[in-house]
Design a protein around this nucleic acid. Structure first.
Length: 567
RNA sequence: UGGGGCGUCGCCAAGCGGUAAGGCACGGGUCUUUGGAAUCCGCAUUCGGAGGUUCGAAUCCUCCCGCCCCAGCCA
């Protein structure tokens, strides 16, 4: 697929793996894994990891396993399990039969813990959680050894066995690795391997009441699956010494290597599961799949194609430094895909009635419109036209500024695929607001071309008033009103910067009749406005559309630069 | 003031001792029945700073500055 000139941009992980393969390490094989914990929905940051892991595996002719990191039953739920698998498949990746769980290895991990006890490298500690924290020391002072650190192997064995048997309450004992309480790396100060949790696990049910910690479970799970490159985010860099310590002190079947990369931060949104959960629980959004959410479920409902997300993940690259990616890059990736695929259709969001005075009363004609100028195979459709139509309020200005090309008193413009019309009169209500336009059309311009070759500076979208279908349209803006809300130094939190205008609902947009019954999820370009997709909230009475992303809007840029006001 | 990372264009990001890729954004042109799309052109004498090594440094050395992560029986 990748020809010689479509070479992908190198990154340090790709480079390391290529070197390993070249040296024949791991027999030249590459096996990666995507290891989510089922404690929340997947978001665009996970997409980066998914694309990296599955992408690298396929690039090197290897495979990527799917593994639930389910070591903490207190936080994990099956609702998340289902959504996670669904989202990875939707993104376009397939783990075939290789669906694994850290909980598949509980028995093996337990045996290895026993072996570590026998070799004097692990012990049961009976300090309380607070005491363990005190004994751990601080960033600048070394820790102290627990008084239980030198229990005999026999005693440790018995205690650990009874921990498993359920003879102790939560928190009474833990199993710790015996490493070095004076290490400058806090992860090596006798890390906890097992804690007691009398709690059912979604898979193992009541079989266990002791559960392994991430640090103890992850590397060994990797080794059992023959993972060659275990790719994780930067915050685990300090854990690598521990990851390696376990692998060095346990008789594992293979030797994986941990590599760390920087997680994705996207402007105007948040990525942490904690914050996303807060948005859902505190009703700032309608749910995990709210189209404003950076979750894959939200983006799917918003209308972002999986291909666009994959392209975005390739474009942002992979590095080790903190970054904040411009939201515009994601939007560019979305438009790029949709431009080629989305059928065009006309919809008027904020209607302004236009009466064409010289058009025959009661006549309705069908005009031919191109479905997708980027794709001839998409064909054409018929759009009804008659004496009364709606145009966009923004497409008319009574006193147009210099660079406004659209309709104005006395001005002629084109109605897309229809006729040239000239505004001859403006009807206002008692408040002085424009409520209707009176225009005349030129019958010779049918279809939108003028036989005499005269030009017009603008083409407007429109909808036939008598045949229009009303639809609800939801317009989305950024969830947060500033790009970076991570600085909480003055007691501020991201919630202080939630954009109160992130959702704008248009109750009665006028839609051309051709998509009156569009299937949920179908994406269209509403000409001159943007890409929109049918929402599952649609009913047989009323369609609901989500604005996926606007089109690039040069006029908006000009208007802003010149300080043009609406109206 | 311990340890681990990181500093290349407004935002990402290549580069690994031979004289600064690419994408987005931005500015301008062409074309246009979407102010869309497409297309062309422009956009870092300089790589956090200061010294040093070298014929030659973003790349090597020294010192300095800045930012991120770590004190869960979370992952």
């Amino acid at each position: 697929m990748n020809g010689p000139e479509t070479k992908v941009a190198p990154n340090f992980i790709r480079t390391i793996i290529a070197e390993d393969v070249k040296k024949g390490k791991n027999g030249g094989h590459v096996i990666t894994r995507f290891p989510p914990e089922p404690n929340g929905y997947l978001h665009i940051g996970h997409a980066k990891s998914i694309c990296l892991n599955f992408g690298l595996a396929s690039e090197f002719g290897g495979q990527c396993n799917f593994r639930f990191d389910d070591t903490n039953p207190g936080k994990e739920e099956v609702e998340y399990v289902d959504s996670i698998m669904n989202d990875v498949r939707w993104l376009g990746f397939d783990w075939q039969e290789r669906l694994y769980h850290a909980s598949d290895y509980f028995e093996r991990l337990y045996e290895w813990a026993v072996a570590l006890i026998k070799s004097g490298k692990a012990y049961v500690d009976s300090l309380s959680a607070e005491q363990i924290r005190e004994y751990r020391g601080t960033l600048t002072e070394p820790g102290k050894e627990s008084p239980y650190r030198n229990r005999s192997v026999a005693e440790n064995l018995e205690l650990f066995e009874r921990m498993r048997a359920g003879e102790y309450k939560d928190g009474e004992h833990v199993l710790r690795a015996k490493i070095d309480m004076g290490s400058p790396n806090l992860n090596l100060r006798d890390p906890v391997m097992y804690r007691i949790r009398h709690m059912a696990h979604w898979r193992t049910k009541d079989k266990w009441c002791i559960y392994p910690m991430y640090d103890y479970a992850h590397g060994q799970s990797d080794a059992l699956e023959g993972i060659t490159h275990s790719i994780c985010t930067m915050e685990y860099e300090d854990h690598r010494a521990l990851y390696d310590w376990f692998l060095d002190n346990i008789d594992v079947p293979s030797r994986p290597r941990q590599l760390e990369f920087a997680r994705l931060n996207l402007a105007y949104t948040v990525m942490s599961k904690r914050k996303l959960l807060q948005l859902v629980k505190e009703r700032f959004v309608a749910g995990w799949d709210d189209p404003r959410m950076p979750t894959l479920a939200g983006m799917r409902r918003r209308g972002y194609p999986p291909e666009a997300i994959r392209n975005f993940c390739e474009r942002i690259g992979v590095g080790k430094r903190d970054s904040l990616v411009d939201y515009g890059l994601l939007e560019y990736s979305v438009r790029e895909v949709l431009n080629l695929k989305a059928p065009r259709v006309m919809c008027v969001l904020r209607p302004l009635k236009v009466v064409i005075e010289n058009y025959p009363e009661g006549q309705v004609e069908q005009l031919e419109a191109i479905n997708n100028p980027e794709d001839a195979s998409a064909g054409v459709r018929a759009v009804p036209f008659s004496k009364e139509i709606y145009i966009e309020r923004d497409d008319f200005m009574e006193n147009p500024p210099k660079h406004f090309f659209r309709l104005a008193p006395g001005r002629e413009v084109r109605l897309r695929y229809a006729y040239f019309i000239t505004c001859v009169d403006v009807v206002k209500n008692e408040l002085g607001e424009v409520i209707e336009l009176r225009c005349v059309y030129d019958p010779a311009t049918r279809g939108g071309d003028s036989p005499d070759g005269r030009k017009v500076k603008a083409t407007l979208h429109w909808v036939c008033a008598s045949r229009a279908v009303e639809a609800q349209v939801r317009l989305y803006n950024t969830l947060l009103n500033r790009p970076d809300t991570s600085d909480e130094t003055n007691g501020a939190t991201f919630k202080d910067f939630i954009n109160p205008n992130s959702l704008e609902v248009i109750a009665d947009a006028k839609l051309e009749p051709s998509i009156a019954r569009a299937p949920s999820g179908a994406t269209y370009q509403f000409e001159r406005l943007g890409y929109f997709c049918a929402d599952p909230d649609s009913t047989s009475e009323k369609m609901v559309f989500n604005r996926t992303v606007t089109l690039r809007d040069t006029w908006a840029k000009v208007a802003k630069a010149e300080g043009v006001k609406k109206g």
